[in-house]
Structure formats: C-alpha cells, structure tokens
Design a protein around this nucleic acid. Sequence first.
RNA 1: GCUGGGAUAGCGAAGUGGUCAAACGCAUCAGACUGUAAAUCUGCCGGCUCACGCCUUCGUAGGUUCGACUCCUACUCCCAGCA
Length: 376
Amino acid sequence: MNPGFSFEIKKQNGLARVGTIHTPHGDIQTPCFVGAATRATVKALTFAQMKELGSQAILANTYHLLLAPGVDLIEKAGGLSKFTSYEGPTFTDSGGFQILSLPSAKVDFEGVTFKSHINGDKLRMTPESSMQAQWKIGADIHMAFDCVADSRDHDVMLKAMKRTHEWLPIDIAEHQKLAKEAEANGKPYQALYAVVQGGTFEDLRRESAEFMKDLPVDGFGIGSLYTTEDETPNIIKLTNEILPQNKPRHLLGMGSEPRDLFYGALYGCDTFDCVGPTRQARNGAIYTKNGRVNIKNARFKEDFNPIDEGCECYCCKHYSAAYLHHLFKTDEITGKTLASIHNEYFIVHTVDLIREAILNDTLEDYMKDFLAKYYN
RNA sequence: GCUGGGAUAGCGAAGUGGUCAAACGCAUCAGACUGUAAAUCUGCCGGCUCACGCCUUCGUAGGUUCGACUCCUACUCCCAGCA
C-alpha cells in the first residue's frame, strides 16, 4: 500500500459498498459525488460554499489547467491545493477526454496532437506528458491518459480501447518514476487510476477490465459512458464484477441524471464526478425530489415556497422559488450561485443517502422510491 | 402658429410599388445540457390550423394603381428648430 493513499471497505452488499478513501489531503467517505472543478474552481461557487453543502472532494482537469494558467505555474504556486486554497482531497482528469473531444484531435501511436480551443496553438499530449502534468498539478488522485471515444460502432470502440491499453503501461511507468522522484523529495504520494474503456459493448468492457485488473494502479476509472443508455447499468455491473474489490472505482462524468448515481453505487462504483449539476444550475435547470424543473418558467413567478420543499440546502432554507426565478429572469449572478448550491447539494446529498442506505441494507428501497418520484 | 422629421408586431429597428406576416436585436414562452471550448445552445414568437393553407395587419380615413408598409390628400399624435 502506498503511503498516504489507501482504501478500506466498511460494508459490502452485493457489488454495492461503503468505504473510505484515505488521501494526503483527507478522507473521502464513499460512495461520494466529487465536485467538478475543471479549471480549479467549481463554477459560481466558493470552496467554503462547497464545504457547507457537504462536498468532500473536487476534480480538476489537466487539459484546462495546461492551457491556463499552465501546470508549471501551479507547481510553482505549491500545487493545486496551495494554489486554490482548497484543503480537501482532489482528483485530476488526465485531459484525454477533453482533448479527444476537440475537432482538431489526431491520435497516433504515441499520443494526441490537437489545437488549443483558446488560441489555436498546436499542442501534443502523450501518456508521459499527462502524467508529468498531473504530478505538477499535484492532485491526490490522477487518471491515466486514456483514448476516449463516443460511438455506437464496435470497431471504433475497439480501436480506442486497444490504444488505451497500449498507453496504460506507459502511464504506469511514468507515474512510478515520478512517484519515486516525489518520495525522494519528501513529497506526498499521488495515486493513479487506470480507466476502463469499451463503450456500451459487453465484450470490450470485459476485455478492458480483465486487461487492467491486475496492473499496479491504485484504483480504476470507468470511462466512455456518456449518457444513460439501457445498457449502462449492466456495463457498470459487469465491469465492477471483474475489477478487484479492494480498489476504489470512479465513474467518470456520470451524475447529471440521478439514476446514474444509483446504478453506479448499486453496481460498485465509489466516486462520481459530473459537470451536470453546476452547469444545469447555471442554465436554470433545478433538481427536485419530483424531477427537474426550469426555474425560469412563468409558473414560479409567484411561488413563495422553496424550489425543492424540504430541501436542507442554503438556497432552499433561505429563499423562495419566486426569488430564484427573479434572479434568473434578471440575469443576476447570485441566482446561478444559489442554483449551483442547490443542485450540487442535491446530488452530493443524494449520494450521501445512498451511502447510508447501503449501510442500512435499504439501498434498493431507497432507489425505487427516489426514482419513482424523480422520474414520475 | 410656422418649418422640417417621424408614426411598422410587446419594445427597438429594417423595409421604401409586387418575392412582406414583414429582416435583425431585445423581451416573452418553452426545450436541451452527463470525465465543462457551455453565465451556453435550440425552438417558438399576429390570428385560426396537426399540417398544406387560410385570414387580419405596417397611426386614422380616403385616393392613385392590375398591385401599396412603400405614391397622393386630409386628419390625429410625437420629436426638433423657429415664433
């Protein structure tokens, strides 16, 4: 076990489990929803607000931080934690997902060439350079540089998976080299997760999970699942049946739809991240127990109840739907902040309740009840 | 009172004889958003109709013309300058 990073399981029921991820910046009680702080900030929120709403950890993005302010600057500032004054556990995504979603991305054997979406600079990222960048940023948990694809074409997904598998040993070797250097310099260990590929294809998921399960990594990401497809729960399930039980699993990018969190936790995922809650909040889509609503709709104009009756978040405890409606209609930034507090709380809290339900052996009841109300 | 300028859909604003139910912007009313190129994007936006389509509109009332938001006359109101 690497010093400063470990995972312990407190309770297991089927594939679902409750555990703790120990990191140099603190513990994460799992299952846990990790806040998306792509550019080293959760949009529209302060870290104090994140803490108050119950957030345990955040995830930043290597691609974005590479472009601005640059990973060398973050290293110079003393790392992500010092730079942002965020004290809790942190993740970084490798940048693979973002880079490969750029129209300019060209994949070759050794890496990806792409153009900055900001100024068009021609840039290149490889497994080595992603590992180096992530070590400079200094989050507690890194993702391997994977080859992501979004397709229903088996052949496309097969190629992306193969490429990911070719890159993974390079990720690991570079990571171990950097870990040794860090240790020599008295710096804390930073963990590495391998990212399973295969889209919605069972055979590819199995192959990918089998390929990765015994590799010397600290945990696993499940990637290339974009939207809730009918196959998604089953894909998560069969992947986690293969991955080792004693290492944490992060479901990448899923959590815009609450059902994804339930299926993820039910089938053995420990952490989640998603831009959905905050992005949708900024655009006026608010989660409630009875489904998602658009706060800009005229029906909220004179609704003096909280947007989600009974919700314990700062927004719902203090403000009415009518007030939030007004802030959105007049485009006041505070509206985006309050809505972000609510949505982030809603998702974080829902996962907290999932954790409790697993402990109490009531997950299936809670899930059934929640989903029936939310997707009525 | 005189002299100019102007009155177009909720607002602003194009159009200046036919292809105008009328560009564009805003507002309205909805929708989307899943490892954040996203404080973004999309649709609707005179009335009736699921739709083809039909009907009524460009200050008011007349007139010219095959045909007018576009030309003419009168009136009403606005704005600027001069009395």
